[in-house]
């Protein structure tokens, strides 16, 4: 009996220690996305470079692709452009969702599409251009509907327009091989 009073609390204590220790190494950003296995939300957004063209979810059906949320203001996004360009050369279709910063009417200059286009063109020339085209999410409505918490984030959309993966953070060779490539293979098979 005395032994039981010693070993039961000890076991509980060790269990708690292991549980708390594992918490030290877990990534708080790693969590199930709410947009998984749902269709792309409704939207009608202009193309960044040809603003007269309006993109809707239906126009994106037919092919599995990556939807990459990015902005030239975001250093990590600029850093991943190089590797994404490599992926494009391997035949991966990548569409950009341009995540524009909110503007403070008191302090910031009004939005200028021309300036943004120049900025984007320059960045893509410097770092590589992985995008088939870019959709401009000026008000970040689509991003909010997709559950985007910042940039960069990447969604894997299948040929029926269903979200199959949601990756928060940059895409590098390790992440691509370990996490996204298998899913891309799985969902791009006809």
């Amino acid at each position: 009996m005395r032994k039981l009073f010693f070993y039961v609390p000890l076991a509980l204590f060790l269990l708690l220690t292991v549980f708390l220790l594992s918490g030290l190494f877990s990534d708080p950003r790693e969590r199930e996305s709410a947009s998984l296995n749902k269709a792309l939300p409704e939207f009608a957004l202009a193309d960044l470079m040809q603003p007269q063209h309006i993109w809707t979810p239906e126009q994106l059906h037919g092919e599995t692709f990556l939807l990459n949320v990015w902005g030239t203001w975001c250093p990590t996004c600029n850093a991943e452009l190089g590797y994404l360009t490599e992926l494009r050369k391997q035949g991966v279709k990548i569409v950009g969702l341009y995540y524009e910063l909110p503007r403070d009417p008191t302090f910031d200059a009004p939005f200028s599409l021309k300036a943004l286009q120049q900025d984007v063109a320059q960045k893509l020339q410097q770092n590589g251009d992985p995008y088939q085209f870019n959709i401009l999410d000026l008000e970040r409505r689509l991003s909010l509907d997709l559950g985007v918490s910042g940039a960069p984030e990447t969604f894997l959309i299948d040929s029926n327009g269903i979200v199959r993966a949601h990756h928060i953070g940059d895409i590098n060779p390790q992440i691509w091989r370990a996490k996204l490539a298998p899913l891309y293979q799985q969902w791009s098979q006809p």
Binding site: R29, Y99, L101, P102, S143, L144, V148, S149, G150
Partner: peptide, 16 residues
């Protein structure tokens, strides 16, 4: 994380 949207000035918190 660990801030509510009233306290945070992250872009997503502003939008929310």
């Amino acid at each position: 994380q660990n801030q509510n949207i009233a306290d945070s000035n992250a872009i997503v918190a502003v939008d929310m």
